[in-house]
Amino acid sequence: MATDQPAPPAIAIRDLDVVRGDNHVLHGVSLEVPAGKITGLLGPSGCGKSTLMRSIVGVQIVGGGEIEVLGAAAGSPELRPRVGYVTQAPSVYGDLSVAENLGYFGSLYGVGSDRIATTIGTVGLRGFEGRITGTLSGGQRSRVSLATALLNDPDLLVLDEPTVGLDPVLRDELWRTFGELAKAGTTLLVSSHVMDEAGECDELLLMREGRLLRQTTPAALREETGQQDLGKAFLTVIERSEQPS
């Protein structure tokens, strides 16, 4: 049986180095993010997840290495309509209503009002259109931020800790939304410092102190470590990486 050519990865990074002042944030990170799947980027706070994501969307000054995103160099102008990026802190205008925020970002992408209405539904904010964004709860605000990135149905979504501060029900709903997006062909790169979210991902990138420890899957991680709990499995990986081999 002829094997199908595997689809090219959505993101391919080779030897990425980022230095900020005296701080070496990323050390020779190499990885591939498969297309059309949910890849979880996991690691403790401050391990370089956000910097890696900023490098992928092309807003980070990088010290060395290559980043290819959807077949182009990271940050190329042609990628701007194709890559959605949601920062950790909601980056929307607090003094505008939900509808006005989405209206503005929508007009930059050239999408119509029906698409805006659909997106508001996707993030579960129907009924909040007229509310001033700054008066919403933190979780609602971050969903407005998420909605702006979903507006033009990008091929790649880079989401920096999208579920932080959300209640478990909302978190579950959001992961279901991510699953639906992936099923429809979107590539998702989602960061989290909560290991129990790793189980929701197809692929895992485990980071610590600016280095990539593993690129794996939840099943393979469990098998490798003999731990069912993914949090404990991550700890095992860390312990093994620190032991001299």
């Binding site: 969307v57 701007r80 929307v92």
Partner: peptide, 13 residues
Amino acid sequence: TSGTLERLMTMPL
């Protein structure tokens, strides 16, 4: 400082 400029810079604008 709010991150909106950084986001705008990743958008077709």
